[in-house]
Design a binder for these strands. Structure first.
Length: 803
DNA sequence: AGCACGCCGACT
DNA sequence: GTCGGCGTGCTC
């Protein structure tokens, strides 16, 4: 076995296949599938993943692998296979699939440099080159680009004076600390100490320390403790009395926190009934998907915890997925509290280094439970016992760029491999999942009551049109105002929820209604208060707010704030004595700010918590007795077939924040469309009825879960090109599919232009189309090589955002 | 993606 | 006659 198949880090159609390389003798026993290697590729060096070892290759002129980047594989057999599965199921390049499964820190960085060719002196080169060399005798290409000396470099390289080199760099080093310990036994140490001459007082002290504390110690600590320097230690190492070594350490984001250990709670009869099938599947190593449908506050987390406990006792491992937004300290505490150091946490709040360290803990089997957002589904466990997906309906489980996977599908795929259960938990399951449970594809487990049989909060729906008619033009209905005042007097807490969308901070002329748009994209610019600039979220374009309206020259330009700011100001007017904590992108930008604000609220430092999406989840404070939703229908009118479902889920979710403990809770939902079923049924908290109503709508309009969707988006600088290509694609698909299948389009995308590229799309709705995958691949084969002509074709199977 | 190779226009 | 534009095709 001297040949390795390598998937190279070049994401194009043409290179999306294994390339064969010879393994140099020195690495023959080292290199294995799943390792990252550095390989020559054309004139440069790049990173690649070894997928296979073999003895023969169809290619004659094989080149050699430069070196391995790992000492042990970063992807095991199962994950390599999973990568292929991802590639097949999301139609992405293999390299994207592999990279998605690893922490970003393992992605290579490339650097191009030049160095002097053999026998050439710096001074042989023309000015200003001789003075531009770095310590290591190279000039960095990216710096040369900035200073405009690239042509000079190229000329010198052509003359053979300079040599171009390509480097692959690790993004990140393992963090290591130096440790020391005695290398001889305690009695010997005592003897040796006597022998140290009197003038080496510090060396004596060090040995005395080790006689008293006969164990390893971190070098830095030792030096601090004894007020000495490394030279003392070096002398003792020379004498073979001490040994020194490097040890890998982890950047533990939770290092300075203690977690109160908790024990399993007694389960209610309902919880007991719900957990039993899961434990049974655990016992029998049976793959099954459970849908744990439990109202807010019904104790789903305890079921997760005890199912995991059961796995750990069987020597297996567990993955828990939680939506990013709900990955709060509260959530982490519950898992760390129960399982202590056995838990790794993965979320976007961690630095690349911290994420890598958490991943290393998993890889080295130092933890058995990982709690994390979407990408934690790829945790490199090898003896998985259970996968839990909390808030299963959350759209953030779908990744929107390559590879466009849904964590739920990946979870089921992995669980099948390990023969273990998947538990999908939600108070408001996605229609897809609930439908599968109805069809007995998933097993339904219900928790219809709250713990201790607390009543669900009472919900009042306020018709804001009525308020307007009654002369109330404020954003607070009379009822909400009264109740807020009441809580203030009773010293209880309230949460006000504002749906961010519809209130986004665009800049508008009050006279003519002109909204400032991005010049490159057909979307309004977002106002950022911190920088007092307008920014495009799609292309990054920035600009200052004009003094005058570009259309009508009026100077009545104003921005519509993030909404929360406006609400805060308004609240200050009507309830001046209320202490308010505002949570939105502006106040939670800094690291840890989110956590601190919530802590303040929990500590009773404020009466009202005002915020967007981010407060809809996980809040569980005993003193909250009122929840207000300022405008329930802002997301209802988005061009998205899931908007009713999302509205219902959000309203139910938010309502669940109230009265989770002794005090009963009240919920006020303000809306302009109280008659809409998703608002009405969120009011009565009737998921089952909502499910039936929404399923009818989906059936009539040929949407999931009755039909599968595939979205094809084409973009190009020229509108004509986009239209004609999309038309050709749509035509080709129509010619290939059955007549039960619906092909919509071509139509302009909801955002018709991003970054000066026009966007057209085509939506396929189908029930059964076994050959669709092949058809789509043909399309990609045809058009992905046209990227040179500026054409982009992207395909999203089961899209969540139809934009 | 990069890069080399290759074929046409405007300069020393 | 050469320098350099970017169109095309290849990387084991």
């Amino acid at each position: 076995m001297k040949i390795a198949s390598v998937i190279v880090d070049v994401p194009t159609k043409q290179t999306d296949k294994p390339f064969d390389y010879l393994i140099p003798h020195q690495w023959e026993d080292t290199i294995q599938p799943g390792m990252r290697v550095i390989v020559p590729f054309g004139p440069r060096k790049i990173q690649g993943f070894v997928t296979e070892l073999k003895n023969h290759s169809e290619f004659k002129q094989l080149r050699e692998i430069c070196e391995p980047m790992d000492l042990e594989p970063v992807l095991n057999k199962e994950l390599l296979d999973l990568g292929n599965w991802l590639t097949e199921n999301t139609l992405c390049f293999k390299i994207f699939a592999y990279q998605a499964m690893l922490p970003a820190a393992l992605k290579a960085k490339y650097q191009k440099k030049v160095k002097l060719a053999a026998g050439v002196e710096r001074l042989d080169l023309p000015e200003p080159l001789p003075s531009l060399f770095h310590q290591d005798g190279t000039i960095h290409w990216d710096e040369a680009l900035k200073s405009g000396i690239v042509p000079t470099l190229q000329r010198e390289a052509a003359k053979g004076h300079l040599e171009v080199i390509y480097e692959v760099k690790e993004k990140l080093k393992k963090k290591q600390i130096k440790k020391v310990r005695p290398s001889v036994s305690l009695p010997e140490l005592t003897v040796e100490m006597e022998r140290i001459p009197q003038r080496a007082a510090k060396q004596k002290e060090v040995l005395k320390y080790f006689i008293e504390n006969n164990r390893e110690v971190e070098l830095k600590q030792l030096l601090d403790h004894l007020h000495t320097t490394k030279s003392t230690i070096n002398a003792l190492i020379e004498k073979n009395l001490l040994v020194e070594w490097d040890e890998e350490v982890y950047r533990d984001p939770y290092e300075h926190r203690t977690f109160e250990r908790t024990k399993s709670l007694a389960l209610t009869v309902q919880q007991q009934a719900a957990i039993e099938p899961i434990l049974k599947a655990n016992d029998e190593n049976q793959h099954k998907v459970f849908l744990l449908y439990g109202v807010t506050g019904s104790g789903k987390t305890e079921i997760y915890l005890q199912s995991i406990q059961d796995c750990l006792e069987k020597g297996k491992e567990a993955i828990v997925l939680v939506p990013e937004i709900a990955l709060t300290p509260q959530m982490v505490n519950r898992f760390k509290g129960r399982f202590g150091d056995l838990v790794a946490v993965m979320h976007s709040g961690l630095s690349a280094g911290e994420k890598y360290d958490e991943w290393r803990k998993i890889q080295r089997r130092e933890v058995s439970v990982v709690v994390g957002a979407r990408s934690a589904i790829f945790a490199p466990f090898e003896n998985l016992g259970i996968i839990i997906i909390d808030e299963e309906h959350e759209t953030s489980y779908k990744q929107e760029d390559m590879p466009r996977y849904h964590a739920r599908e990946v979870a089921i795929k992995r669980a099948k491999t390990y023969g273990c259960p998947v538990v999908l938990g939600s108070a408001t399951p996605s229609l897809e999942s609930f439908a599968r449970a109805q069809k007995k594809v998933y097993e339904l487990l219900s928790l219809p009551n709250r713990m201790n049989n607390q009543a669900l909060p009472s919900v009042e729906i306020i018709d804001m049109r009525e308020e307007l008619r009654a002369g109330n033009r404020s954003m607070f209905s009379r009822s909400l105002f009264e109740k807020l005042k009441d809580r203030l007097e009773k010293k209880q807490q309230s949460v006000l929820f504002l749906n961010k969308r519809g209130y986004s901070s665009f800049v508008m002329c009050r006279d003519c209604g002109y909204v400032i748009n991005c010049p490159n994209c057909d979307i309004s610019l977002t106002y950022h208060r911190a920088s007092e600039q307008m920014k495009c979220h799609y292309c990054g374009y920035e600009s200052y707010v004009p003094k005058q309206c570009p259309e009508c020259l009026s100077d009545h330009i104003r921005y519509f704030g993030t909404g929360t700011q406006k609400v805060e100001a308004e609240l200050g007017k009507i309830l001046p004595e209320a202490r308010i904590i505002r949570m939105d992108v502006d106040t939670t930008g800094r690291k840890g700010a989110h956590e601190r604000l919530l802590q303040d609220f929990q500590d009773g430092k404020a009466d009202i918590l005002l915020g967007t999406q981010m407060i809809a989840k996980g809040l569980d404070f005993p003193n909250i007795t009122l929840v207000g939703v300022l405008s329930a229908d802002t997301m209802l009118h988005l061009p998205d077939f899931r908007s009713s479902e999302k509205t219902f889920q959000l309203l139910t979710q938010v309502s669940g924040r109230a009265g989770r403990h002794q005090l009963p809770g009240e919920v006020i939902i303000q809306t302009y469309t109280p008659e809409h079923y998703s608002v009405e049924l969120a009011g009565t908290q009737d998921y089952d009825l909502f499910y039936q109503r929404e399923m009818m709508v989906r059936k009539v309009h040929h949407y999931p879960p009755f039909y599968f969707l595939t979205l094809i988006t084409v973009s190009h600088e020229q509108l004509m090109t986009v239209v004609s290509v999309t038309e050709k694609i749509a035509g080709y698909i129509r010619s290939q599919v059955s007549n039960e299948t619906v092909v919509l389009g071509p139509t302009a995308s909801p955002i018709p232009r991003i970054n000066n590229r026009y966007r057209y799309q085509c939506l396929i709705k189908y029930k059964r189309e076994p050959d669709l995958s092949r058809t789509l691949k043909t399309i990609l084969d045809q058009y992905q090589k046209d990227t040179a002509h500026g054409l982009h074709v992207s395909i999203d199977l089961n899209p969540f955002i139809l934009m």
